[in-house]
Design a binder for these strands. Structure first.
Lengths: 187, 187
DNA sequence: CCTTACATGTAACAAGTTACATGATTAG
DNA sequence: CTAATCATGTAACTTGTTACATGTAAGG
């Protein structure tokens, strides 16, 4: 059910089409929530049905009409009610960690490749987060509560990426013995 | 599909019943993978169908028979093949972070309560992980590769918990201004 | 009396993924 | 020619959750 409230929160900030929401999730909310466009369109249809959102069609030449969604009073109430509820922490389901339990079936070459991919992934994430930081929160000391909250979500993304990179370094030390630039002086 | 390989890896280490596997996931693998008993029984049935596992019934007085599953040759091959594949990092879907995007609709009291719950959760996780560390990896310097891999998975759990606690402290500093024991001498 | 551990499942539902469908415009 | 952006969806499938079902024995 959280997708629904993620959409309501996004639309509460600013009305948007399904397409816009998809881009927002992909470009600026990847560290908070993920959803495909199919999921978004389906959930918007349901929410429209339950009158949590309303739609304003905007005709366009040569393209499908844009359907701009906004949160209704009922939607706002639903979101507010949800905010007062507690929620369990998301369950951990990580294929990379599962592999570590295959013991001798997992060889060093595969482990090394997965680890390199993981490091590349989180380095890329870090770059994205740093760029979001510069674009949206340039004056870190002087943010409204609204932006301070969003900044803290981004901080979470940054800490997660850093924590994984730290772990990856530990892995190399303890499992692979070879540093990143393995060709030079590693006697 | 990862559940399947998590089960294969667990059964490869030691044959077990669905019930046993459920306990293993709950007690010792919560930082790696999560699954309910219904999911486990369903997946075991499928894997039996595809001959990735075999079953040995063990009759018991006054209880349902224990059905001890073990990995077959085909199952081992499937697991090995899976280990050579790359896998995308799991998508982030965190209701707590979604709440931060509700802006002024989220009040300090609710935020404070959620944050306290989050801290309690990860402090509890840390306690569990520390106890697993003592029980399974007492001599950290002297582990076989097999156990070193599992130890690194546990390290991941520990780093995750620590990272969230660090973030929670940042949250208090930046959003709530009140330290944990707010009643005593706080400016 | 009540809960927990033991031991297995079925059924219905919700959430997320993958494949398919349409069609114009712009950039390389 | 090819891919990406814009803009909407449907359909089928897989994965994960919740509710229900059965029955004994031990511990507080």
């Amino acid at each position: 059910m959280t997708l629904r409230f993620a959409l309501l929160a996004a639309l509460h900030e600013e009305p948007a089409t399904g397409y816009d929401l998809n881009r927002r999730f992909r470009d600026r909310l990847g560290h908070v929530w993920n959803a495909s466009h199919q999921q978004i369109y389906r959930e918007l249809a349901r929410m429209l049905d339950e009158a949590l959102v309303a739609v304003q069609p905007v005709p366009q030449a040569d393209r499908p009409d844009r359907k701009v969604y906004r949160v209704t009073q009922g939607g706002k109430r639903a979101l507010q009610a949800w905010l007062t509820e507690g929620h369990p922490r998301p369950a951990i389901r990580d294929p990379f960690l599962v592999k570590l339990f295959a013991g001798e079936l997992l060889n060093d070459a595969d482990l090394e490749r997965d680890l390199a991919e993981l490091e590349a992934h989180y380095r890329e994430r870090l770059r994205t987060y740093r760029s979001l930081e510069r674009r949206w929160f340039p004056d870190e000391r002087n943010l409204s509560r609204h932006y301070r909250l969003q900044y803290m979500a981004l901080r979470r993304g940054i800490l997660t990426a850093e924590s994984w990179l730290q772990w990856a370094a530990e892995m190399r030390e303890r499992m692979l013995l070879s540093a990143r630039g393995a060709s030079k002086g590693n006697g």
